[in-house]
Amino acid sequence: MLAKRMILCLDVKDGRTVKGTNFGNLKDAGDIVELAKRYSDEGADELVFLDITASHERRKTMLTWVEQVAEAVNIPFTVGGGISSDLDVSNLLSKGADKVSINTAALIKPALIDTLALCFGRQCIVVAIDARKEDGNWNVYINGGRKKTSYELFSWAKEAESRGAGEILFTSMDHDGTNQGFACEAVARLSEELTIPVIASGGAGKMEDFYDAFTLGKADAALAAGVFHYGKLAIPDVKRYLDSREIEIRI
């Protein structure tokens, strides 16, 4: 039976991993390749790297560390951050990234999803969505959570799927960095309405949160970062816990 996936996310800035809370207050979280290797050895099922470097050097430095990660780890990894063209994607895939995650560029030009899915296959196109619940509506944000769009989470996710997204990575900005659990209700609705896998992100704080994401949230995968970077939880413990509660998981 297909296992639920535990995905470790590393935010990257200027070639180092960082972790913020509620889309702000960045703290250094360590060397990229070292952390990637450690998480893969500890049993992470996948890794996601989001490069939030603001400078124009980003594209170049990204290719360097992506290649280093591809050399070091033997599990799949996704790369995101400022990807806006088929050339970006082709460069990253050629350096060993398995998937790319697009966010802002897809909202600015939704047809980018169609193009990328056609060129590279939908299985490597992850559409990441950052959203926040305001007055009962899940509003979609771009530019790393700084700018609100006119899009709504569920309709945008549907559109992304129909354009060729292979997976949806949904981050609840309300939950991100709070360690108070995932936005299970919204995740469950996404999972029910879509036919592609849904990754729940934002809010992991304790082992039960992962259990809830997979049961209440019906998520195909759950993504977390800070809770593992700072050693509050360890991947093998979480996996054993999930296994003991009869969640299908890779041990």
Partner: peptide, 30 residues
Amino acid sequence: KIPHMGWNNIYDLKSPLFEGIESGERMYFV
């Protein structure tokens, strides 16, 4: 959900290709 994406068990292993690998181990599919 399609694609079939993630770690799934393989079984009925019948080849030296799988020497040292137990039936039921998980591999990554996409």
